[in-house]
Structure formats: structure tokens, C-alpha cells
């Protein structure tokens, strides 16, 4: 019996190579709302799943520019405009002295922003996931295929047949209310 609130389906693979092959077949079969839950990132999985290169580096670059502008703005505002001090007749706009802080601010903005954005992007730029804390074994040693029930092709029985046909072990439907909670 299929519950009315099925969130999707899970199926286990045991080796990264099998998971990559399966991912390519899932994609070729026309599923779009699917994901692989894995203990570590797998080479070739992005291509197999049809994912483009991450856009994170663009965000990092934008943040780096922000950090540079912030540091240059602060130092020039303070040293040239708001509180100019005469050190042995040296120019107020002593730009070489501003380089270290500009560099540090660039790294600071870019690195902290990148870490934050990557964590948020991992959640938002994704497909519907299994209910929180579903024990899939994917943090241990399983490479778990997940097809969300929101997929346009979704049909529980068809999905189960398909996932089993990929050679997945332990194929099971997941209840949206958290039926697989520990």
C-alpha cells in the first residue's frame, strides 16, 4: 500500500562507480527531481546527474571585490579625508601601506561569505529532500538514490520498479511525515 503522503523513494548502492552509472540512467530516463546521498563527494557524479559547475566561485569573487572596496573605502576615508595625519611629510594617500589590510579584508569577506553561501545553497539550490534526519545510511557507507515525489514523472509503483531495475538494494518509499525517523 502506498501512503497518501509519500515524499519519495530511496534505493541503496554500495560503490561509487555503481552510483555514477545509476545516476546517468536515472537522468536518461527523464527524472529530474532526484538526488544522490553519499558519504563523500564522487568524481563524475556532477556530469552523471547533469549538474553544471557550481556558481559559488562567482559569489566568492563578488564578495572579494566587496571586501576590497570596503577596505579601500575605510582606509582612504580615515587616512585621507577624516583624520589626515602627517608622518614625516609622507603623503596622506599612502596607498602601498593600505595593501595589507585590503588583502585581508578581501579574504575575510570572500571566505566567510563563501562558507555561508555554500551552506545555504546546498539547501536552496536543490530538489526536495527526504524528511530531516531520515536514517539513510548515506553518512556511513551507502550511496543512496533519492527520487522525490514532486517529480513530474512520479508514480510510486513505477518509481519502485525503476529504482529496482537499476540494481538498487533495499528500495523503500519514504513517508513525508517522517516514517523513517529513528
Amino acid at each position: 500500500m502506498t501512503p497518501a503522503t509519500t515524499a519519495g523513494i530511496l534505493g541503496d548502492f554500495y560503490e561509487p562507480a555503481d552510483a555514477v552509472t545509476a545516476a546517468a540512467r536515472v537522468r536518461a530516463a527523464g527524472w529530474t527531481q532526484f538526488d544522490f546521498l553519499t558519504p563523500f563527494p564522487i568524481h563524475g557524479m556532477d556530469e552523471a546527474m547533469g549538474q553544471k559547475r557550481s556558481w559559488i566561485p562567482w559569489a566568492s569573487a563578488a564578495l572579494a571585490v566587496g571586501g576590497i572596496l570596503f577596505a579601500q573605502g575605510l582606509q582612504n576615508y580615515v587616512m585621507v579625508w577624516d583624520w589626515p595625519l602627517n608622518f614625516g611629510g609622507k603623503p596622506f594617500f599612502s596607498w602601498p601601506a593600505f595593501i595589507p589590510i585590503t588583502f585581508e579584508a578581501m579574504v575575510f569577506w570572500s571566505a566567510l561569505g563563501t562558507a555561508f553561501i555554500a551552506i545555504v545553497a546546498g539547501k536552496k539550490d536543490s530538489v526536495p529532500q527526504p524528511p530531516p534526519m531520515t536514517a539513510t545510511g548515506a553518512t556511513v557507507d551507502r550511496f543512496v538514490l533519492w527520487i522525490a515525489a514532486t517529480d513530474p514523472k512520479w508514480d510510486a509503483a513505477e518509481a519502485a520498479r525503476f529504482v529496482a531495475s537499476l540494481g538498487a538494494d533495499h528500495v523503500r518509499l519514504v513517508d513525508a511525515e517522517g516514517g523513517t525517523h529513528a
Binding site: 538526488d35 544522490f36 546521498l37 553519499t38 558519504p39 563527494p41 564522487i42 557524479m45 556532477d46 546527474m49 549538474q51 559547475r53 557550481s54 559559488i56 566561485p57 566568492s60 570572500s110 571566505a111 563563501t114 562558507a115 553561501i117 555554500a118 545553497a121 546546498g122 539547501k123 539550490d125 536543490s126 530538489v127 529532500q129 527526504p130 530531516p132 534526519m133 531520515t134 539513510t136 548515506a138 553518512t139 543512496v144 533519492w146
Partner: peptide, 19 residues
Amino acid sequence: GWNGSHRAWRHYESAYMVL
């Protein structure tokens, strides 16, 4: 709430490389 999603790994790995 990390669950090992490869769609999250994609951004994670990119961010790790940038960092």
C-alpha cells in the same frame, strides 16, 4: 541538517576549493 545530498556536495566542494 546535512544529509549527504550530492546537490549540496557540489556547492560544498566548490566552496572548499575557494576557501
